Amino acid sequence: MRTVADVLAGFRSLPVADIHTVLDGGKALILAPHPDDESLGCGGFIASACIAGHAPIVVILTDGAASHPGSRQCPPARLRAVREAEARDAVARLGLPPDNLIFLRHADTGLPASGPDFETACNNIAMIAHTTGCALLVAPWHGDPHCDHQAAALMAAAVAARGRLRLLSYPVWGWLRDGDDRVGEARHGGYRLDITDHLSAKQHAIAAHVSQYGGLITDSPAGFQLPPALLAVFEAPFEVFIE
């Protein structure tokens, strides 16, 4: 077990690379646990790959409908539609063709981590990768402290192993973990993708997720809001991809 502080320091010292090096000739399938993770963790990747002529496939795993519990203004069915519209807007700002965005609509906070539903989800992801010709799977880091992110990491590992796909992981909430926490992380390789030329597009995409900023849905006291500390992390001119 290593401390989170040690692991994150290692992430920040990974070699800088461009999109061609990160892709290594393969088409990418990106797994996002919720609508907004694709922009937060991979917005620069998506924009860079699109400009390079290698638009990825983006699969959003859950419906995001648990972000504002109890809201009458935006009950779950409506919230799902709002969040999907925001995701479509966000990836369009990154240059992704609309047909490259797929919603699997698992329940928010209920993404399966084992059992028959887990196997079904893995089979669906594997089929998408096969039919779209993806050789690279990009998924959340297993150290992200959110159940859906951890389930997505397990799915990605299973699909990559079965299909012999290359796997890269990206941190989102892991950046905010207590540095004294312990995490089972082996010494790793990977890259810091230089997104200097695409940082503005990434910020524009993140901003498309209006419902997650706290001003759109006002009748849910426990409603989720993207914290400033997390948004500040993604102002960096690089994104981390762990191999």
Rank of each mutant, 00 (worst) to 15 (best):
A152I: 00
A152Q: 05
A153D: 09
A153Q: 03
A153N: 07
A153C: 03
L154K: 09
A156M: 01
A157H: 12
A157K: 11
A157S: 14
A158S: 11
A158N: 07
V159L: 02
V159N: 05
V159R: 06
V159F: 06
A160F: 03
R162I: 11
R162H: 15
G163P: 07
R164H: 14
L165Y: 07
L167K: 00
L168Y: 01
S169D: 10
Y170D: 12
Y170M: 01
P171I: 03
P171A: 01
V172E: 15
W173Y: 07
W173D: 05
W173V: 09
W173E: 06
G174A: 09
W175G: 03
L176C: 06
R177L: 04
D178P: 04
D178E: 07
D178I: 06
D178L: 01
G179S: 05
D180P: 06
D181S: 12
D181N: 12
V183E: 15
E185A: 08
A186M: 10
A186L: 09
A186N: 15
R187M: 11
R187Y: 15
R187F: 15
R187Q: 13
H188T: 04
H188A: 12
G189V: 12
G189P: 14
G190Q: 05
L193P: 12
D194M: 05
D194K: 06
D194C: 10
D194H: 08
I195Y: 10
I195G: 10
T196G: 15
T196R: 14
T196P: 07
H198K: 08
H198D: 15
L199F: 08
L199T: 10
L199S: 08
S200T: 11
K202N: 04
K202M: 00
K202L: 00
H204R: 13
A205M: 04
A205C: 06
A207V: 01
A207M: 05
A207L: 04
A208G: 09
H209L: 01
H209M: 01
H209W: 03
S211W: 00
Q212S: 12
Q212E: 10
Y213D: 13
Y213A: 14
G214E: 05
G214I: 00
I217A: 06
T218D: 12
D219G: 07
P221V: 03
P221E: 09
P221I: 04
P221A: 11
P221H: 10
A222C: 07
F224P: 04
Q225H: 08
Q225D: 11
Q225I: 11
Q225R: 10
Q225W: 04
L226F: 14
P227E: 10
P227T: 13
P227A: 10
P228L: 02
A229C: 07
L230D: 13
A232M: 06
A232T: 13
A232D: 15
V233I: 13
V233L: 04
V233P: 08
F234H: 07
F234C: 11
E235L: 01
E235H: 13
E235V: 00
E235S: 03
E235C: 02
A236I: 01
A236E: 14
F238R: 04
F238A: 10
F238C: 09
F238Y: 15
E239R: 07
E239S: 07
E239L: 06
V240D: 04
V240G: 02
F241N: 12
F241W: 10
I242T: 12
